[in-house]
């Protein structure tokens, strides 16, 4: 996994609440058995005027000029500013894969759906919860200042404003460590494999039917 420490990025505002994972990456793209290549289809239904299907040459498709990601001033944005309940809906990890593939590294919103929030950390993407009032202010500033950038400092857990002000945010210590060091969760867990075996041995005595019930 890509490590995440510090990010000085252009901000793109997506001003609607409850952006669901079907909107982030529509289901027809979930048929892929790969992990990469979803970026061109991020927000497909909003981003293009035609209907997208896997295998199409996306560079030839008509873009929706009204959609914020298509506006030249937000080209190359790495920070997505969003409204409440971002990422609600399905568990598809294709959503963070698409965001990451597009180039987004951090998302700022008042709240995130649980599974999506979790999935972000597995993919080097940092979801940042800030108070609705602050997010609202950031939307205002992004709209009025061309080339508006923010500086995310994960080590110190702050979002730096162009004015020099810093807004603190919360993140779990464990998730932070994994993100900063780009650690592989599975490798970390397997360090404790003896504890997992010990748990299983104990549990087998308490509830033997949980272990391959069909053969009992």
């Amino acid at each position: 996994m890509k490590a995440f420490t510090h990010l000085d990025g252009l901000v793109v505002p997506l001003d609607r609440p409850n952006v669901d994972t079907d909107a982030i990456i529509p289901k027809q793209f979930l048929k892929s058995i790969r992990r990469s290549g979803f970026g061109p289809n991020l927000f497909d239904e909003w981003r293009y005027l035609d209907h997208g299907e896997p295998g199409m040459d996306n560079s030839k498709r008509p873009l929706n000029p009204d959609f914020v990601l298509n506006q030249p001033r937000f080209k190359g944005a790495q920070i997505l500013l969003a409204r409440e309940n971002f990422g609600c809906g399905s568990s598809r990890e294709h959503a963070p894969w698409a965001l990451e593939d597009y180039g987004i590294r951090a998302i700022i919103a008042p709240s995130f759906a649980d599974i999506f929030y979790n999935n972000c950390f597995k993919n080097g993407l940092l979801p940042i919860r800030l108070e609705a009032g602050i997010v609202d202010r950031l939307f205002g500033e992004t709209a009025s200042v061309e080339g508006y950038r923010l500086v995310v400092d994960l080590e110190n857990q702050t979002v730096g404003l162009p004015s020099g002000g810093k807004i603190p945010f919360e993140v779990d210590a464990f998730r932070k460590k994994c993100l900063i060091e780009g650690l592989d969760d599975i490798g970390l867990t397997l360090i404790h494999k003896d504890e997992i075996r010990a748990y299983e041995a104990k549990r087998k005595l308490e509830a033997p039917w949980l272990f391959d019930g069909r053969n009992l």
Partner: peptide, 18 residues
């Protein structure tokens, strides 16, 4: 509860979830 694909891999490999 539902999990993402990285977690599917994690559960397959370790029988556990973080």
């Amino acid at each position: 509860f539902g999990i993402g694909t990285s977690e599917v891999e994690h559960v397959l490999a370790t029988q556990c979830l973080l």
